[in-house]
Structures are given as C-alpha cells and as structure tokens.
Simulated scan of single mutants.
Amino acid sequence: MTPDQIRLVQDSFREIVPIRVAVAALFYERLFAIDADLRALFPMTDMTKQGAKLMASLGFIVHGLEPADTILPTVRVLARRHVTYGVEERHYPIVGQALIETLAAGLGTAFTPAVREAWEAAYGLLASVMIAAAREDQLAA
C-alpha cells in the first residue's frame, strides 16, 4: 500500500466510527445476502457483539497499516482462529465484496474511486496474509 492509500483508509475509517454499529449491521446483512450459507458460521451468535468485534478488529488493522508489519503477527493469529470457526479460503472474496459494498453505502459520496482502491488494497493485504497463515497451518497439520 502507498502512504496515500494508507491515509485514505485511515481518514475514511474515522468517518465510519461514529456510525460503526449501523455499518457493522449492514456488513453482515450484505455478507449474508451475497452468500446465505455463511450465516451457518455464526450459530447462536449475538450479532451486535459480533459487529462490535468486527469494528474493533478493523480499527486495529486500519491504525496498524503504517507500518503494516507490526500487525501481521496478530493478523496471522486471527486467520488461524477463523479457520477454527469454519472460514475457508473461498470466503475471503465474499467478505471483501461485502466490506467494499458496506463502505460505499456508509461513506456515500466520500467513497471516491481513490478511497475504494485504497480499501481494496488494504483488504487485499489483509486477506493475503490471512490466507497464507491458514495454508501454513493446513500444511503443518
């Protein structure tokens, strides 16, 4: 990610924070609309609490993008935990789509093409690290 992309992600996330509860709810609504089967990964889950966890994780990642290597160990642990929840590699593009659609709705006109590109780069980095960590665990098993 470029320094400008990092700044765009961080600045736009600050705009999301005041509406984080609604954004988190919209994310899961979009996620389940894209792939209803993913709902099964959240049995008996309080989705309000899950949304708070999502937003806390996003905040941690967004603020740790500079330098990104400081958050990578935690991201790898997060990936391994998600494998135990049933998350598969094929789910990452779906989550990315839901995230981008949610941000577009939440930010409205502030979700410019440059902001979209920056978020896509950030999610691409996150997803690639998480997928690699999950693959490493599968190979070690």
Rank of each mutant, 00 (worst) to 15 (best):
R39F: 07
A40P: 00
A40C: 02
A40T: 06
L41G: 04
L41H: 04
L41V: 04
F42W: 09
P43V: 08
M44C: 05
M44D: 14
M44P: 00
M44R: 15
T45I: 13
T45Y: 06
T45V: 15
D46K: 03
D46C: 02
M47S: 07
M47Y: 06
T48E: 14
K49Q: 14
Q50A: 10
G51W: 08
A52D: 15
A52S: 15
K53D: 05
K53H: 13
K53W: 02
K53Q: 12
L54T: 07
M55K: 07
A56N: 13
A56H: 12
A56V: 09
A56C: 03
S57P: 00
S57W: 00
L58K: 00
G59L: 05
G59N: 11
G59P: 03
G59A: 08
F60L: 12
F60W: 09
I61T: 10
I61H: 02
I61Q: 05
V62S: 07
V62F: 09
H63C: 05
L65V: 01
L65A: 01
L65H: 01
E66D: 15
E66K: 11
E66R: 11
E66T: 10
P67Q: 04
A68L: 03
A68G: 00
A68K: 03
D69F: 09
D69P: 04
I71E: 01
L72Q: 06
P73K: 02
T74Q: 15
T74A: 15
V75D: 00
V75K: 01
R76P: 03
A79S: 09
A79Y: 00
A79I: 01
R80D: 14
R81K: 15
R81D: 13
R81M: 10
H82E: 13
V83R: 15
V83K: 12
T84P: 00
T84V: 10
Y85I: 07
G86H: 12
G86V: 12
V87A: 12
V87M: 10
E88Y: 10
E88I: 11
H91R: 03
H91T: 03
P93E: 02
I94N: 02
I94V: 15
V95L: 12
V95P: 00
V95W: 02
V95T: 04
G96R: 09
G96C: 12
Q97Y: 02
Q97K: 13
Q97I: 05
A98Q: 11
A98Y: 10
A98N: 11
